[in-house]
Amino acid sequence: MAQDLMLEKWSGKISTVTIGATIADGGTRKHSIKIGGEKSLPNLFKEGAIPNKTQIAFEIWDAPPTDWPDELNKIYGSYYKDPITWAKTCVEKYKATCLCVRLQAAHPDFGNKTAQQEAQFIKELLKAVAVPLVIIGCGDDSKDSLILPACSEAAKGEICLIGSAVQNNYKTLAAALSADGHNIIAESPIDINIAKQLNILISDMGLPLEKIVINPTIGALGYGLEYAYSIMERARLAALSGDKTVASPFICFVGQESWQVKEAKANAEEFPAWGKETERGIIWEILTATALIQAGADLLVMRHPLAIEKINKYIEELYQC
């Protein structure tokens, strides 16, 4: 006997966020990317429309990372002092369709670059590469409040995704991005209540809910991934039931979380049973990414080109279902 699929009918949908402005849109990007727009739980293609595939942004820094493991240093180490070449390599050699640049050089411990210097760097980066940009601060709240508005202005008209706004530090960023037409990343510490509250606070600042991408904060495989999964699932269920305040696409920092765990970094001599460290980190990044795609991630920020290649293939196959 034929079995009918049990399909939910949802009243809500996730908002669609466009990153990157082409010449036609008043920017200089060769293409833009769209994320979100789902009318169904993740990957239930028969339940409702899933118009946009999960996208991947290559993560680059404007200061040499000090805690990246050898597997990543082997690939990118020669560009650490030249982030523009690093960016170009990602686009030209590894076919990146989106870049996520972390402005680490502004951090007081990593060079303490000024807002003006970072704004200049963003201008040069926009000239050097034509893909859409995600711009992330250095993580020092008071410094980010200076550099991010300056970079927002420098990239005016390019429709970037810029962050992160947090509950105690969102006003300056939201006001600047609103004026310059960018999208914002709203970051909450694996907490659905704060995620919702922050979205409301940002929209009260005049940046519409449709310009927000939620960073739910994730853990890598084995390090709290399941907590992130539950938060993302809860937000999606509420959003699809009509709660617009949590109906934002998700950005997940897969590379950052995966490459800092012991399993990704420890050498084989220390843990012979774990296999080669040349493969382990890549596998860890791949597995963390696939799990988050199942949780509903819309934009993954990743590091290793081989992991990204595999995940792109995985996404292609998933969408052929």
């Binding site: 659905i192 409301i200 617009k244």
Partner: peptide
């Protein structure tokens, strides 16, 4: 409905 500090205000935003 999901709690947040502005839950009363949020209800207005949920409404179409």
């Amino acid at each position: 409905k999901i709690y947040c500090d502005s839950f009363l205000e949020a209800y207005g935003k949920i409404q179409s």
